[in-house]
Nucleic acid binder design. Sequence first.
RNA 1: GGGCGAUUAGCUCAAUGGUAGAGCAUCUCGUUUACACCGAGAGGGUUGGGGGUUCGAGCCCCUCAUCGCCCA
Length: 880
Amino acid sequence: MENIEFPPRYEATSVESKWYQAWDDANLFSPSDDTTKPSYCITIPPPNITGSLHMGHALCYPLQDVLGRFQRMQGKRVLILPGQDHAGIATQSVVEKQLRKEGSSGAELGREKFVERVWQWRGESGDTILTQLKALGCAFDWSRLRFTLDDHYANTVLQVFIDWYNKGHIYRGKRVVNWDPKLKTSVSDIETLRETRKGHLYHIRYDFTDGTGSVVIATTRPETMLADIAVAVHPSDKRYEGKIGKMLRLPLVGREIPLVSDLYPDPEFGTGAVKITPAHDPNDYEVGVRHNLAMPVVLDLSARISAEWNREFEPELASSVEKYEGMDRYEARKQIVKDLEECGALVEIVDHEIPIILSDRSGEVIEPLLSEQWFARQGELAKPVIEAVQQDEITFHPARYKDIFLAWMESIRDWNISRQLWWGHRIPAYYTEENELFVALTWEEAQKQAGSKKIVRQDTDVLDTWFSSGMWPFVTLGWPEQSEDMNSFYPTSILITDRNIINLWVARMLMMGYDLVGAKPFSQVIIYATVLREDGRRMSKSLGTGIDPMDVINTLGADALRWTLLSQTGENQDLRYSEKKTEEARNFCNKIWNATRFVLMNVDGIPAKPTELETVDKWLLSRLVHTEKEVKQAYERFDLQAACQALYRFFWSEVCDWYIEISKSRLYNDEQKATPQWVLLTAFEAFIKMLHPIMPFITEELYKYLPIEGKREFVMSADWPVLPADLNQPEAEQEIESVFAATRALRALRAELDLKPMQQVASVYFEGDLKGNEAIVSSQAWVQNLIHGKPNGRFVSATSGGIDLHIGVEGLIDLAKVLESITRDLAKSTDEEAKLAARLDNPQFVERAKPEVIERDRATLAELKARIEKLEARQALLGA
RNA sequence: GGGCGAUUAGCUCAAUGGUAGAGCAUCUCGUUUACACCGAGAGGGUUGGGGGUUCGAGCCCCUCAUCGCCCA
């Protein structure tokens, strides 16, 4: 073996850079042609074209890669289909920002030019993240790369819109939506953030028109009073008994509004009376609908006061509102509070924590605004999904998300699918001069439908990005065509995503899958942990608290990064990323590298399978069998934390710390070396395969060098290890572990005597049965002669299991440490003995505990007693 | 306000109701032909507080506290 190829330090970056291309060249990313194999498919959550890799991605996509690689090794026909989302708002704002820098704007360019510009931007920098996914080692089938604005995809989205419209699933209506006054579009809940800010609660008096007193309402948003249409109180509220239905005079405006009874107001809060502004508050909107109230709008799309509504519907009152026209909502608030104070309607102002909603994209405070939007009905579509989840046809991991999901689905609301943007799927709705609506794929078809009426414009809105991504698992596979991929891979196997978009995305895919395809899109939903910083704070680009995974990959390697995140992945809700852990993972890579290097230095060709095995060989192979079982089960239940733990323990502690050390003497002996060579290669081959899904690069590199039979060209396309059941040898395991325990006890005794590690001791005596494993003890505890019996003269001892080990001490050496250790050990043993004896003396314990527990406790007690006797004897000997 | 999760060694996390473990960090020792990105040894815990169930609770139940997330 050449040292140039195999330096003593593992260089991740040079190894990692070559393998991705090699896999691609060998066409390993596409599903195998063998259609008799069972399929396994994941359509990855499409990252935004604006996205660049963050730590969440570095967990999410490798997690899918792990499952794909694992299933491929299990003999499945695996397809992991990658793609990207056009991400309406995100992309549009990125390009807008760029235009602003150039002194231009979308408005200046106009719709057509702007959209062209976005396509240009996508061409230039839209696929950054795809390159990064490759750097992470994700074995995705790039030949099937999809984009939500590809021709086929876009046409399908429009066709679904048309079909749903024709079926009555989609309608146009007025609703209160989350309005971003800066971006001038409605946004979905996921594109908003909630915060609490210090503000004020304003108490305002509304007088009854008949002069019989007044009602005081409390509001955090006095400026919206211009659009008040009622005051509501709870029916149980005694304070307003007999007053329901009476009219109040709205201060400043002069409008007469009724006092209504509704379950919405909380009688405990303030005066129990709330002003109802249906156009500017979602709860008020519901009240407005229940009471059939008018819905005056007093803010325009920039959140400035507008008198438009009044001019149209209450011209006689318009002048009172016009005073504020054009004022920004906050400016208007000041002025209105001042005017209320002047007219004596302001009762008091108190400090109050007010909840606000921010637009994730622009940072602007969201204005709930009544506006005309397109909606998709959800109630009917939700039914089959709810049923399937209830009956566990679709399962969640962790399982707790099932109930959370169901609770949301059962109270699902209609979905606002229109966005006032240019980048996206433009709604295929066309209008005549008389505003008559025709929904059709093209202008021409709409015109055909319209007959003699003339189509003059197309709807300017685009569809919510989630409307298109809701069809991701099947449109990417070719639906609505009965494509081969649809036949082979739908329903897909699993969906892995972030808990934040369970309702917004997962729910929609499920509903669309059942309704459009007639079958569920996937059977399992896996929710992965949120990656936090080391200190538990969120990683956020805007706060500058993010860590760029690419930096980590370039220094410590993709394998190390994958291990760091995956080894912390179980059913936990969050995980903390620390670069220190990645250094540990890098160290693990180095350990694997060097251990393999050692094996390769000590083998020559493929060793024959031995006929005779020593106990320690049986021990390692038995540990291997258990590890394989553990790792496989852990992968199957998505518990990568457990898989990593089992792999780490097996390799570092069992293979490296014990087996390699023990087998060195045999490896250096030509007569004996074949057996440990075979055992090592068997263990390494299996280990490298089992590790491969998590660390694809280093395992691929090392697999190349292993002299083993039936080797494939790539470990990536190798089969999962098959280990004969007879390798499981519990007796050998037990025997060897007790020998290790004795070795450890002897090493500890040596340390107490200040004997340097690895400094040979001439003679150590032992009592008890080492069952022929004396060589292990003597080589691993650095003893020249291990002799059965007791030494002459003074000696000190250690005990482990049934084995006593003695080291002779001559002259006046300092035995303080030994004595100290004995005293400590004695105290601990006595304490344990007392506890155990007390338990066994308890008749209820003996009566009710499981027999095997009692049995074990009795045995332990006997051992403790013997140990205490020995310790006391030794103490007496040294103390004398 | 409602729901979910977390709280275990200095740190990050494990532990089918049966003597609480690992890695890192700390301390001591060690250049040994795979690896100092290494090896040997050691110390370190009232499992957030308080109740309860049980022969037995980190684990089950109640309650409180703190932190995080989701929904309103």
